[in-house]
Simulated assay, not measured.
Amino acid sequence: MSDPIETAIFEKLAKADPKSVGGKSIEPSDVAKELQPEQWQRMLPKVKAVALGLMRQGKLTITKKGKAVDPNSFKGVIRLRLPTEAETAAALAALPPVVEDDDDFA
């Protein structure tokens, strides 16, 4: 099952950046307005939270004044865009390692 906020973010980005090169950005408020036109201000924190999760997974970049922000310490006006290959690699490298358990429970 797909998250409607995540879907809306990527649909808006597909329209803004059809070649998926990570050049064009969108405002989180545009996504919130599309999802809830009458009460978009209430939706905005949810859009930003989903965007933050996507950034931590390397699927999205949050920018401020055109530069990628630290996902742990940003505030203020932001924009969303598709990540470059380097940004995706950096985000994936920052994820904690996956620990595989070799125990047999047989």
Rank of each mutant, 00 (worst) to 15 (best):
K65M: 07
G58W: 09
I26T: 05
A90M: 06
A14V: 07
L92V: 10
L80R: 03
K64M: 11
G76A: 11
A49M: 08
Q57G: 08
I9G: 11
A8K: 09
V50A: 13
S2K: 15
D3L: 13
P45H: 02
E6M: 14
A68Q: 10
V99A: 12
E85I: 06
A16C: 05
R81K: 14
E100K: 15
A94I: 03
S25G: 09
A91C: 10
K46A: 07
E27S: 13
T84A: 12
T84D: 07
A51C: 05
I5V: 15
R56H: 00
P45T: 02
L13H: 03
R56K: 11
V69Q: 05
D103N: 13
P71D: 01
A68Y: 04
E6A: 15
D102F: 15
I5H: 09
D17M: 11
M43C: 01
E11S: 09
V31H: 10
L95H: 01
D104C: 13
K75N: 13
S25L: 08
S25P: 03
F105G: 13
K59W: 05
T61I: 00
P28S: 08
V50Y: 01
K64V: 06
A86V: 07
P83Q: 10
L95A: 05
A32T: 06
L60T: 01
D70Q: 10
S29F: 04
E85C: 01
D101P: 00
K65A: 15
E38P: 00
V99P: 01
D30M: 07
K65L: 06
K75A: 12
G22A: 12
E85L: 11
A91L: 06
K65W: 13
P97K: 09
L13Q: 05
L60M: 05
P37S: 07
A91I: 02
E11V: 15
D102N: 15
P4D: 09
A106W: 11
P97G: 04
P71M: 04
A32W: 06
E27R: 11
G22T: 09
A16W: 04
K15N: 02
A8T: 11
P18S: 12
V99L: 09
P97H: 01
V77M: 07
V50W: 02
S2Q: 15
D17N: 10
P45Q: 02
A89H: 07
N72H: 12
Q39M: 12
P28C: 10
V31K: 06
V47T: 08
M43K: 05
K59A: 12
